[in-house]
């Protein structure tokens, strides 16, 4: 079943999954998943816990390889063994991992700045961006702290800042508001919406229906639902 979503921004397809199947240890998690996500769109991905939202995002981020089917990102077909392609495409994607994946021995500010460093961007010219973003996610006081001393919500905000510091074309966020209060959740949502208005493609996995509802008052967002190993357009979208 092909889930086609509206073309919002030209007709470039940022994510294209073609009959993807994947599972862990012989159990199928996803079967025949197809989706096309156009550039500049805003999508939510929902579904019950364990449905495979994180798994699907990991496939898109090239952390897992599909057992069947193929993936194209930014119009490029993925060659499973091409490490250089993987790196090149990942640099166009900002990810917020459900488990944050901050680097333990680096301060919050250094974690947030790391993608710049990895892409060889001179720190000198970006120091202000980092400071500004740290302030935006409300971590100025904690900028020099190590991740293990942060609360879950603070880690989450650091992870979000790291995902957007390079101003990537595609932002993938796995439960970005899972550990933060409603007010901070709205702030994060507004950041994502703002980035979407600047032309970034956004894909957010969440169970937080309140977040989806709030988003829909700000932006034209569509909801994809994972159910029974398949991906459907949510009932409300039909």
């Amino acid at each position: 079943m092909q889930v086609l979503t509206g073309v919002l921004n030209g007709n470039l397809t940022v994510i294209s999954l073609d009959r993807i199947s994947f599972g862990y240890d012989g159990r199928a998690t996803l079967e025949g998943v197809e989706v096309t996500i156009p550039a500049g769109s805003f999508h939510f991905l929902t579904g019950p816990s364990g449905a495979g939202k994180t798994t699907l995002l990991k496939l898109i981020h090239l952390e897992h390889r599909p057992h069947k089917g193929s993936i194209a990102l930014f119009g490029e077909n993925i060659a499973p063994s091409d490490a250089a392609q993987r790196t090149r495409l990942r640099r166009r994607i900002g990810v917020v991992f459900q488990d944050f994946r901050l680097i333990d021995h680096m301060s919050v500010a250094d974690n947030i700045a790391l993608p710049l460093r990895l892409q060889g961007k001179p720190m000198a010219t970006h120091r202000e961006d980092v400071t500004e973003l740290v302030e935006w996610v409300g971590l100025t006081e904690r900028a020099d702290a190590l991740p293990r001393t942060l609360s879950a919500g603070e880690k989450q905000r650091a992870a979000i800042a790291r995902a957007v510091i390079t101003s990537p074309e595609l932002i993938i966020a796995d439960e970005p508001t899972g550990n933060i209060d409603a007010e901070m959740g709205m702030r994060i949502l507004r950041l994502l919406v703002e980035l979407n208005r600047l032309g970034k493609t956004v894909l957010v996995a969440t169970h937080d229906l309140g977040l989806i509802r709030a988003a829909k008052s700000l932006v034209q967002a569509r909801t994809l639902r994972l159910s029974e190993r398949r991906l459907l357009l949510a009932a409300s979208e039909l």
Partner: peptide, 15 residues
Amino acid sequence: ELVRIIRLIGGEDAF
């Protein structure tokens, strides 16, 4: 784990 994270956020193996 550090290697995995660096790769996931766009670091090259050369780095």
